[in-house]
């Protein structure tokens, strides 16, 4: 461990703001990239399910 206390870890030797902004925004972008295709797939399958139900009713 490179830091002596948790407060030290958060402060990052006065560079805390820079380090945590970088990691925060980057993590958010990665999560967005993983979530978008998952959501798109779910939406597509829901549409397809509706379409199949409609066809069966005819």
């Amino acid at each position: 461990m490179n830091f002596s206390s948790f407060a030290d870890f958060i402060a990052m030797g006065n560079h805390g703001l820079y380090v945590w902004t970088s990691y925060g925004i980057s993590l958010a972008v990665l999560l967005l990239n993983a979530a978008l295709p998952l959501l798109a797939r779910r939406r597509y399958l829901q549409e397809e399910a509706r379409r199949l139900r409609r066809e069966e009713m005819k």
Partner: peptide, 28 residues
């Protein structure tokens, strides 16, 4: 990514010139 983030943020030594801001390297 989980291992690398924790390792880079908390365990890697700090840079003798740039201090802790160099930790941004692990995503940059």
């Amino acid at each position: 990514i989980a291992v690398g983030t924790v390792w880079g943020l908390a365990f890697a030594p700090q840079d003798y010139q740039q201090g802790n801001s160099f930790r941004i390297i692990y995503i940059h």
